[in-house]
Design a protein around this nucleic acid. Structure first.
Length: 400
RNA sequence: GCGCAGGUGGCAGAGUGGUCAAUUGCAACUGGCUGUAAACCAGUCGCCCUAUGGGCUACGGGGGUUCAAAUCCCUCCCUGCGCA
């Protein structure tokens, strides 16, 4: 049922346009997949995400849904799509990223691009600012990750097998292997450790996925599993590690192996395209590649030109909730004084529902007065902007 | 008219002789946000300068006590409540 077809390739570059077919429909690639961590694209109804944003699929998170409402609830509801009234294709991230965001990155201004925080030991990934291990909400070992719930502090243990089991129950069309995302600028040695651990976990995920597919888990479906499993490639900013990781994960993906690939980890802000190209050059052409957690307009463009097919990123919706909007003129901070009496459209070149019907002055007012609608309207615009940016890139590849 | 309470930076509201250019919150201004601990976080927020330091003007107006006052005294103005 899962199938990927390349329709067109760029003449100069690794970019390609294609179609991913899933049990819940097709995804024309390249495609931007909005993030709906907790089975909701924040501030938007599924109907808006489909009709006004024009998104083809959504991506939710295993860790968050496991904690709340519980994966068994979603299984009982008939799977993620039915639960959130999203008829199209769905993805779930494995929870691996939370080992990063709740672990060494916790409380630091660390992101996939941010420079390393001085109070983290890049070799051990332990926080030097506080030796209080309990402060961290995720501890990583070769076996798995111990998480503390962000909701109530309770302890939970994730292994690759556990993540796959949960993702089976949640029932997204495309699921990801459990991986370790190392901090940007982590010492080379540690990036290698994280990469090797990710490879070991990838094998375990594949095994668990096959075993799970053979079994029928009560609740969601008695039919054989039709979920596609993507293996994740790590390696940070190092070319040799990135290529090695891509080759290793791809090698585990002959028939019956991974259905596609996720490219995770950290990147050099000024050169996402290059890092992605290293990986794309090693991967088989006939399987889809998802770039995890990217991105900003310029990053997306660079990644598409270097062979990436799908993307997810919280930026459009988070920026929206924080009062920022993408535009053809660059990023706009709607809380800035200059917009108070600006009665023009958010982006004169945008054709979204918000740009056609509302003014900058109105949006600025909503942001300043902290009205919920500001998050909704800016999310519609930002997602539309990014989804269309990627769609235009797709058209450009098809038209040559 | 008498009595009581009070007048502090855009607003609210601390401070009640020196450590006060003045706590805090809000507002305002600016920046950040990339597989969501994020409808969040950070910085600035009297004026000026040769700016991890210095100068000036400020706590209703005026005057005074003191080495030193937003803080004490006198007086005037204003606000609220009560009584006439």
């Amino acid at each position: 049922m899962f199938k990927f077809t390349v329709q067109a390739k760029m003449k100069n570059g690794l970019g390609r346009a294609g179609v991913i077919e899933t049990p819940h429909g097709k995804i024309n690639t390249p495609a931007f997949i909005p993030v709906g961590t907790k089975a909701t694209v924040k501030s938007l109804t599924s109907e808006i995400v489909r009709d006004q944003v024009g998104a083809q699929a959504v991506l939710a998170n295993t860790y968050h849904l496991y904690l709340q409402p519980g994966h068994e609830v979603i299984a009982q509801a008939g799977g993620l799509g039915k639960f959130m009234d999203w008829p199209g294709p769905t993805f779930t991230d494995s929870g691996g990223f939370q080992a990063f965001s709740l672990g060494p990155a916790l409380g630091k201004s660390l992101g996939k691009f941010n420079p390393i925080s001085k109070d983290v030991d890049t070799l051990s990934m332990k926080s030097a600012a506080s030796d209080d291990e309990n402060r961290l909400r995720a501890k990583i070992t070769d076996d798995g990750v111990e998480f503390r719930s962000v909701l109530d502090g309770s302890t939970h243990y994730f292994t690759p097998e556990k993540s796959i089991e949960i993702q089976h129950q949640i029932g997204a069309d495309i699921i990801f292997a459990f991986d370790e995302c190392a901090v940007p600028d982590a010492a080379y040695e540690y990036q290698k450790v994280a990469m090797n651990r990710t490879h070991a976990w990838a094998k375990r995920c594949l095994t668990a996925h096959k075993a799970g597919s053979a079994n029928t888990t009560p609740g969601i479906s008695d039919a054989p599993r039709e979920q596609a499993l993507f293996g994740i490639i790590q390696g940070g900013r190092h070319e040799d590690l990135r290529r090695e990781s891509a080759r290793t994960v791809a090698a585990g993906s002959p028939a019956g192996g991974f259905d596609g690939f996720g490219i995770g980890g950290s990147f050099d802000k000024n050169d996402v395209g290059t890092a992605v190209r290293w990986v794309a050059e090693e991967l088989p052409e006939d399987k889809p590649r998802h770039l995890l957690g990217i991105g900003e307009p310029d990053d997306l463009t660079a990644a598409i030109e270097n062979g990436m097919d799908t993307f997810d990123c919280v930026a459009p919706t988070r920026m929206a909730r924080n009062g920022s909007a993408y535009s053809s003129e660059g990023r706009l901070n709607l809380s800035n004084a200059q917009f108070v009496r600006d009665f023009g459209p958010l982006d004169p070149k945008c054709d979204c529902h918000v740009c056609r019907n509302y003014t900058r002055a109105y949006l600025a007012h909503l942001v300043r007065s902290k009205e919920m609608l500001s998050a909704t309207l800016l999310s519609i615009h930002n997602l539309f902007f990014i989804v269309n940016l990627v769609e235009k890139a797709r058209q450009a590849i098809i038209l040559g």
